[in-house]
């Protein structure tokens, strides 16, 4: 049997303490099981061998920190992930907001490389509402935000993206929907039509330490809080709640749930299958 590095909880604590002291970020309440594995991964990638070595490098090499954040965070994403969610958004949620407001402000919290944002833009464009929208896309990971800004999707992911798009919206008038019409292939990437991104702002923002900066009609925070423990989920949910207009909507990932959060009673379930909630109390 090969020798395996065992990362103990006390090791993780020493690491998160150092990061907090030195860089001001707080990873203390990230979910232990995935966070431990991400640390193990960083140690393997950089061949540090021990947690102590990682701590030492973080302590002495500030330039390494952004890279560390980039590797620690999980950036896996898809366009139109959970197609049925997008269908409900298109048929029920968006029309409802426009009916009441005539405008729509949207926050993608934890947008990763931006696939979710492009999906939103395409959907709003096809509904004829893109001009009415203001979209904010944020993430803690600087490198991934910069990537999102380029709006370039690896060609190899386009097949899955097209599949999701088709199952979300089907075919219109017998013509199969073609995602490619929004992209131009350059080398190994499909680059999105940037003229459609005029109402989108990308910005670095930390959900844990960052402050509430605006209010929105619709907040998407999907597959982000799964990396937090329940204490932190509660704290972040309170921030999301504060960032929403009364009667605004919140969408979380399809396998997440609000029911055990402290302020669950300030929301009602709009669609349980797709995990869409509505804020009913301030």
């Amino acid at each position: 049997m090969s020798i395996e590095l065992d990362i103990e909880i006390t090791d993780i604590r020493r690491l998160t303490d150092l990061i907090k002291d030195k860089y001001g970020y707080d990873f203390k309440d990230y979910a232990m099981s995935s966070f431990r594995r991400r640390i193990k991964r960083v140690i393997d990638i950089y061949k540090f061998k021990t947690v102590d070595k990682l701590i030492q490098v973080l302590d002495t090499t500030p330039t390494f920190f952004e890279e560390f954040i980039s590797e620690i965070t999980v950036n896996v994403t898809e366009m139109f992930r959970d197609p049925t969610f997008w269908r409900i958004l298109k048929e029920q949620i968006i029309p409802n907001i426009i009916l009441n407001h005539d405008r729509i402000s949207i926050w993608h919290a934890g947008c990763s490389s931006g696939e979710e944002v492009l999906s939103m833009v395409i959907m709003l464009h096809e509904m004829g509402f893109l001009e009415k929208a203001k979209i904010m896309a944020t993430d803690i990971d600087t490198a991934i935000i910069n990537k999102a800004k380029t709006a370039a999707i690896p060609l190899k992911n386009m097949e899955l993206n097209q599949k999701n798009y088709t199952s979300a919206f089907g075919s219109e008038g017998g013509q199969p929907l073609n995602l490619k019409k929004y992209f131009r292939d350059v080398g190994q990437e499909s680059v999105f039509d940037k003229s459609l991104l005029q109402n989108v702002t990308y910005r670095k923002h930390d959900l844990v330490q960052g402050s509430v900066f605006s209010k929105f009609d619709l907040v998407l925070c999907r597959n982000v809080m799964i990396y937090f423990n329940q204490t932190l989920q509660n704290a972040v949910l309170a921030k999301l709640h504060e960032s929403m207009f009364k009667y605004g909507y919140l969408a979380i990932g399809s396998k997440e749930s609000l029911i055990w959060c402290d302020i669950a009673n300030k929301f009602i379930v709009v669609n349980n299958e797709e995990k869409i909630y509505k804020k009913i109390k301030d």
Binding site: A31, V74, V76
Partner: peptide, 13 residues
């Protein structure tokens, strides 16, 4: 995954 505090965690890694 099995998480601390007698709970289950999910990940999209």
């Amino acid at each position: 995954s099995i998480e601390l505090g007698n709970s289950i965690a999910l990940s999209t890694e």
